[in-house]
Amino acid sequence: LKGVVVAGGVLAGAVAVASFFLRNKRR
């Protein structure tokens, strides 16, 4: 169960970083 929580956190972080980079590329 702990691994699932960690994986979810990593996935959420990756999505946040990806969206951040996409926003920067638009400018």
Rank of each mutant, 00 (worst) to 15 (best):
L1S: 07
L1W: 12
L1E: 02
L1G: 05
L1P: 08
L1D: 02
L1Y: 03
L1A: 08
L1R: 13
L1N: 05
L1C: 10
L1I: 08
L1K: 09
K2A: 06
K2S: 08
K2W: 11
K2D: 01
K2C: 08
K2M: 09
K2Q: 05
K2P: 08
K2E: 01
K2L: 09
K2V: 08
K2N: 09
G3A: 09
G3E: 07
G3C: 08
G3P: 11
G3L: 14
G3R: 15
G3Y: 12
G3S: 06
G3D: 07
G3N: 14
V4W: 10
V4R: 10
V4E: 02
V4N: 06
V4I: 06
V4Q: 09
V4D: 02
V4Y: 14
V4G: 04
V4C: 11
V5K: 07
V5W: 04
V5P: 01
V5N: 03
V5Y: 00
V5Q: 05
V5R: 09
V6I: 13
V6P: 01
V6D: 02
V6F: 04
V6N: 04
V6L: 10
V6Y: 11
V6M: 15
V6Q: 06
V6S: 05
V6G: 03
A7G: 12
A7S: 10
A7F: 15
A7D: 03
A7H: 12
A7L: 11
A7R: 12
A7P: 03
G8A: 08
G8F: 07
G8I: 13
G8S: 13
G8V: 07
G8M: 02
G8P: 03
G8E: 04
G8Q: 07
G8T: 11
G9P: 05
G9Q: 06
G9E: 05
G9K: 08
G9C: 07
G9Y: 03
G9L: 07
G9T: 12
G9M: 07
G9I: 06
G9F: 03
V10Q: 02
V10F: 14
V10L: 13
V10C: 09
V10M: 13
V10D: 01
V10G: 03
V10P: 02
V10A: 12
L11N: 00
L11P: 00
L11G: 01
L11A: 03
L11Q: 00
L11Y: 05
L11I: 05
L11F: 10
L11M: 09
L11C: 06
L11D: 00
L11S: 01
L11H: 01
A12Q: 05
A12S: 07
A12I: 04
A12K: 04
A12N: 03
G13Y: 02
G13S: 05
G13M: 11
G13A: 08
G13V: 07
G13H: 15
G13C: 08
G13E: 04
G13F: 15
A14V: 14
A14Y: 13
A14I: 10
A14Q: 03
A14D: 00
A14L: 13
A14F: 06
A14N: 01
A14W: 09
A14M: 05
V15F: 15
V15R: 05
V15W: 10
V15G: 01
V15P: 00
V15I: 08
V15E: 00
V15D: 00
V15A: 10
A16Y: 08
A16R: 09
A16E: 02
A16G: 05
A16D: 00
A16W: 10
A16C: 08
A16V: 04
A16K: 06
A16T: 08
V17N: 00
V17C: 12
V17E: 00
V17Y: 10
V17Q: 01
V17A: 10
V17D: 00
V17K: 02
V17S: 01
A18Q: 02
A18L: 11
A18C: 14
A18W: 10
A18N: 00
A18E: 00
A18I: 14
S19R: 09
S19Q: 09
S19H: 15
S19P: 00
S19D: 06
S19L: 15
S19T: 13
S19G: 07
S19W: 14
F20E: 01
F20P: 00
F20S: 03
F20G: 03
F20V: 11
F20A: 07
F20Q: 03
F21N: 00
F21A: 05
F21R: 05
F21L: 11
F21C: 06
F21K: 02
F21Q: 02
F21P: 00
F21M: 02
L22H: 03
L22Q: 02
L22C: 05
L22W: 14
L22D: 01
L22R: 04
L22A: 04
L22G: 02
L22N: 02
L22I: 10
L22T: 02
R23S: 07
R23P: 01
R23L: 12
R23Q: 05
N24D: 04
N24I: 14
N24G: 09
N24R: 11
N24C: 13
N24L: 15
N24K: 10
N24T: 09
N24S: 13
K25E: 06
K25D: 08
K25A: 14
K25N: 13
K25S: 12
K25R: 14
K25G: 11
K25L: 13
R26P: 08
R26Q: 09
R26I: 12
R26C: 08
R26L: 09
R26G: 12
R26Y: 13
R26V: 12
R26K: 13
R26E: 10
R26N: 11
R26A: 12
R27T: 14
R27S: 13
R27A: 13
R27K: 15
R27Q: 12
R27Y: 12
R27M: 11
R27H: 14
R27L: 11
